[in-house]
Computed example of a mutant assay.
Amino acid sequence: MTAYREEDAGTPARSRRWPLLLGIVALALTVSAGGLVWLFQDELFHPFGDVRACEGSDVPLPVVIDPGDAALPADASDVHYVTREGRAQVSFLSSRIPDYLHRASLLPDEAPLFDDRHGAAYGLGDGEPELPEGLCGSPLRGPAWLYGNDSVAVLVERSPLAPDAFPNPARAIVTYALP
C-alpha cells in the first residue's frame, strides 16, 4: 500500500487549471484582435493594398501618378484617388500647384494664375466643401478655380484672403481618362 501525501492532493487540481487559463487568455486575445481589426478596418484593408485608393476603385494607379503626362508635384501629400469606368480622380495637397499647372500645359508660363482664357471660376463659395462622389480624404474648399484641356481637368482651391493666389498648401482635384 502506498502512503498518501498531502502535496499529491494539490497536483491534479493545479494541472487541470492550466488548460482553462490558457483557453481564457486565448479567448481574450482573439476578442481583442477582432476588435482592433474592426476598429481599424478602413486603414487595414484598402483596394489593391494601396492606402491612396478609395473604396469602389476598379483599377489601381501606379506609384507615380501622372495625369496629363505631368507627375504630381514632389511635395504632394494626402493623396487619394478613385478610379471607375476608365476615369480617375486624384486629390492631393501641394504648395507647388503653379508648377504642376505649367508642366501639365494647362497654364502658359507668362499667364497669370487666374486668367479667364486658361481657366474659370468654379461655383464654390468661401469655405464651401467639394468632394466628388467616391473620392475619399479631405474635401477641397471654395473659392476654387478650374483649369482644363481635352485630357485633364484640375480644380484648385483659391485663397479666400488673396484673390490672386493659392493657399499654401492648396488642395487640388485632378480628373482624367485612364490610358
Rank of each mutant, 00 (worst) to 15 (best):
P60Y: 08
L27F: 13
G142R: 07
R158D: 07
E6V: 14
V79P: 00
Q41L: 00
F45S: 12
L22S: 11
L39H: 09
L101R: 12
L161F: 10
E133L: 14
L61G: 12
D150R: 15
S159C: 06
R117E: 05
M1H: 12
L135T: 05
L20P: 01
Y100I: 02
G49Y: 02
E133C: 03
A33L: 15
A104Y: 04
I97M: 10
P47L: 06
P108E: 06
P179A: 03
W18R: 15
S32H: 06
H102S: 04
Y4G: 11
L140M: 09
V79F: 00
E157K: 10
E7T: 14
P108V: 09
V64G: 01
A71M: 01
Y122K: 03
A74R: 15
A33Q: 07
V82I: 15
L72G: 09
F92I: 06
S159P: 02
L29E: 06
P129W: 10
D164V: 02
P129G: 08
H118A: 05
G148R: 08
P160I: 10
A28I: 14
A165T: 12
P62V: 07
E133S: 15
E7G: 06
F40R: 10
F48V: 01
E55T: 08
L124W: 10
G123V: 06
L61D: 12
A170K: 03
D78A: 08
C54L: 03
R103A: 11
G23M: 08
A88I: 00
P129A: 11
F45R: 11
S94E: 04
V64T: 15
V51P: 05
G56V: 05
R5T: 15
R96C: 00
S57Q: 00
P163R: 11
D78F: 00
G23C: 04
A165C: 06
L106T: 03
E43F: 01
D50K: 01
A170D: 04
C136F: 08
V59W: 00
A162R: 15
P47Y: 04
P160H: 11
Y100G: 05
W145G: 10
P47Q: 06
A71H: 00
Y122T: 08
D164N: 10
S105L: 13
P160Y: 07
A74N: 14
S105P: 01
L61E: 12
H102D: 04
P169D: 03
A26Q: 06
P163V: 05
L131V: 09
G23Y: 02
L124K: 10
A28E: 08
V82E: 12
E130H: 15
D126F: 09
L161T: 11
S105H: 12
G34H: 02
E157Q: 14
R84V: 03
A74V: 15
P167D: 01
R117A: 06
D8R: 11
A177N: 14
F114D: 06
T175D: 15
I173F: 04
A53R: 05
